[in-house]
């Protein structure tokens, strides 16, 4: 079995979701002759390739026309590699990057695809994939028909593998630049520089909901509490819709899925769609003024009260320690 992992990176290193996907790939390809390869695409991404080579052999496609992860170009190159390298499973971390590019690659490769996989079982020769449906209300077991298989895996479903002491080989790939699609262009990315870790990568996530009234309150209370744990901030959909928080903080069915060591929900009522994004966190704390808020049903610890009193008190206690 040959598993190819498409690398998502920041131009310098692999993103944490991709290293988790490499761990998942290794669990899949654990038989004699099985192998895992990482495909790194981009422009001037030698350092990313070096990072990936600590885990497994790397195929490197570096070209100015691949500088931005445009789905039509990247999927074309990826599908070409899948065909020429006899890949059985094309894998990526669940993220907007993979949904966009691996989805398109899946369309080029016959559509035997499962998204947001959380685990797998071997049933004789076939693989049974587990994935959430209905905002996580049920877990489906599915068998895919066709080849290759295209899988996106939840980063929380696997641990990153150990880094090898000697790096694996990095091999450039050949592709015809002239044949890359040109009908999509990249005009810009409005990213926010933040001193905090990404919400999917932090050990502690503090999220705010409708109980927060202003952006300043969010930063002072949710941000302030997150900083005491060197954690990340997250947001309910309501605050993003209201323009109080940026979209990339949204946790939930249609946002990011997190499973940190500690998740603190501040002023979040707990709609099913939000719970889908955080209910697998190890310890969940809920702070809400409404004792009947559904968030308390998934919480390990709850305090009913005004977040504007409770959160400053928590920050004060943590500072005093």
């Amino acid at each position: 079995m040959h598993v190819l992992v498409l690398a998502e990176h920041d131009g310098d290193r692999l993103r944490a979701g991709t290293t988790a996907a490499l761990g998942f790939a290794r669990r899949l390809a654990n038989g004699d002759g099985d192998r895992v390869t990482c495909l790194v695409l981009g422009d001037s991404v030698a350092t990313v390739a070096d990072d990936a080579a600590a885990f497994c052999p790397v195929l490197l496609g570096s070209h100015a026309d691949l500088a931005e992860p445009l789905a039509d170009r990247w999927a074309e190159v990826t599908a070409g590699v899948v065909r020429s390298e006899s890949v059985d499973i094309l894998l990526g971390a669940s993220s907007t990057f993979s949904r966009d590019i691996l989805g398109r690659a899946g369309g080029l490769l016959g559509g035997a695809m499962a998204s947001d996989v959380t685990g797998f079982l071997r049933d004789g020769d076939r693989l049974v994939w587990q994935r959430p449906m209905y905002a996580g209300a049920v877990t489906a077991s599915v068998v895919l028909h066709g080849s290759p298989l295209i899988i996106t895996v939840r980063p929380t479903a696997a641990e990153p593998p150990e880094r090898n002491s000697s790096p694996a080989a990095i091999t450039p790939i050949n592709f015809d630049v002239e044949r890359l699609p040109t009908s999509t262009g990249h005009l810009g990315l409005d990213g926010r520089p933040s001193h905090r870790p990404d919400v999917t990568e932090a050990r502690v996530v503090v999220s705010g909901g409708r109980g927060l009234k202003t952006t300043e309150d969010f930063e002072r209370l949710v941000g302030g509490l997150a900083d005491r744990f060197e954690g990340a901030t997250g947001s309910s959909r309501a605050l993003v819709d209201a323009g109080l928080t940026p979209n990339d903080l949204q946790v939930g069915q249609t946002g990011k899925v997190v499973a940190p060591e500690l998740y603190i929900a501040v002023g979040i009522s707990g709609a099913v769609q939000h719970l889908a994004g955080m209910k697998n966190s190890r310890v969940i704390v809920a702070i809400n003024s409404d004792p009947h808020a559904p968030i308390f049903e998934v919480a390990d610890y709850g305090i009913v009260g005004d977040l504007y009193d409770i959160v400053p008190e928590m920050i004060q206690h943590l500072d005093a320690d």
Partner: peptide, 25 residues
């Protein structure tokens, strides 16, 4: 392409503990 072979209900309920004070939490 996708054959559903099973569905499992997921319960996310936890035996939550209601606390009174920040110190307890």
């Amino acid at each position: 392409r996708v054959e559903l072979v099973g569905l499992q209900q997921v319960s996310s309920q936890r035996t939550g503990q209601q606390l009174e004070t920040v110190t307890e939490l």
